[in-house]
């Protein structure tokens, strides 16, 4: 019941890979990492959620907060989600219209490069 967070950079794009559960306990770790990336000047960020087993609105709230932060620098947050249970919570809350969602990191990277 923990969240592992890895960060990397691909062609100047910040990529965060999450593994585990995102809830009221672990969401602050994600928030902190997002803030660090923005402070480092990375405004186009991809968050890979493929290894996330559970996420509730605490996690969604952090993603929305992160989006506001990067948008103030004309940046973006793209998500990589392939699991139906995680996609469902984005559909329920209407956040599928807020975040570009891709099925692989490569797709998300090429979308950012193309825009």
């Amino acid at each position: 019941m923990d969240l592992r967070i890895e960060s990397k950079e691909v062609d100047g794009i910040g990529v965060i890979v999450l593994e585990g559960e995102v809830d009221v306990y672990t969401a602050p770790k994600l928030k902190s990492r997002l803030i660090d990336l923005v402070d480092e000047g990375k405004y186009n960020i991809i968050i890979d959620l493929q290894k996330v087993e559970f996420m509730d609105s605490s996690g969604l709230g952090v993603l929305v907060g992160g989006l506001k932060r990067v948008k103030s620098h004309q940046g973006s947050i793209s998500l990589v989600v392939t699991q139906e249970n995680i996609l469902k919570i984005f559909r329920i809350t209407g956040l599928v219209k807020v975040f570009p969602i891709f099925s692989s990191e490569e797709e998300a990277i090429s979308d950012i490069k193309g825009s």
Binding site: D23, V24, F54, D56, S57, E84, N85, I89
Partner: peptide, 20 residues
């Protein structure tokens, strides 16, 4: 399984509200 996942989310939401 899908309903169990939903119930996990619901429990998490209300416990979070209570704790907050």
């Amino acid at each position: 399984n899908e309903a169990v996942e939903d119930i996990k989310i619901a429990v998490s939401e209300v416990c979070t509200s209570a704790i907050l």
